[in-house]
Structures are given as C-alpha cells and as structure tokens.
Amino acid sequence: MSNYSEESILNYLGPYKGDASAVLRSLQLVQELLGYVPDSALDLVAKNCNVSRAEVYGVFTFYSDFRSTAPAKAVVKVCVAEACQASGCASLISELHDKGYDIHKGTVKADIQMEQTFCLGNCALGPAAMVNGKPIGRATSASILAAAKVAAK
C-alpha cells in the first residue's frame, strides 16, 4: 500500500460510503487499484461501508479472486476443469511442474505466477489458459511461457 495513502483509498471508495451492500465491490476496487488487498484495507472498507471488520474479512476470504499479497507481474491461470481434463491438461500441468511451476500452489518464479482455475469458458479449444487476461487456446507449456515472459517484462 506504499504508493497509496489511506486517504486516497477512502477517496476511491467514496461512492460506496455507508453502503453495506458494497463490501464485495469495495474489495474489488481495492484489488483493482493495488493488485491485492492489504490487511489494513479491510479496516478501510469496513469503515467506509459502515460494517464490522469481521464481515469484510468474511467476504474477503470467501472469494478466491482476492489476494492478500501482491501478485507477480504475469499471472497465469491454467484451467483444470473437466473439458480441459478431456483435452489433456494433466500433461500440460506436469510439464509446467517440470519447468518449476506448481499451479496448485501458485508458484512464483521470474515474475511469473501460475495458478489453477476452474473453467475459462474456452472449452472447445482446451487446454485453456489466460495470461494477465489474455486467453490462450490449445495451450502448451511453450505457448504459456512465451506469453507469460512477454507479460512479465
């Protein structure tokens, strides 16, 4: 949160002041701004939405999108759901593992972070992956790493 003061975050969350139904959107805004949700931001969201910190924490921990630490420059999501299983994501995952990335653990290496996800909606062109929001169809470990290296620059 080094580049952002409490004040600037509260300012950013301004439209949701006093709105208890905006906890999820507030957390999303913080993550959009900082890339993650630092612990201190939970208090700010609670204060701004006028709910308890426990409620904010509950929402924060429920949704898998939220991060408590800053992500790497390139975030790779690799689909592990059924349609991609049927098109061979298991061997893709083990290839990535051999290259030092455990997608189940979210390994970070060389500014590249690899994570598993359940379905990217590209189920006819699996295995599917996404690098910083850019979709990759018929993904191979080479095509994923090539895109990730560009994104990590």
Partner: peptide
Amino acid sequence: AGSYVCGEETAMLESLEG
C-alpha cells in the same frame, strides 16, 4: 470474484448484496 457456487441463484443474490 471466483466462486462457482455463486451460479446458484440464492448464492448469487447474496453476492449481489455484497
């Protein structure tokens, strides 16, 4: 925000309520 169960209609309502 990355939750499969929010496709269930009542879970979706809760999520829409933040």
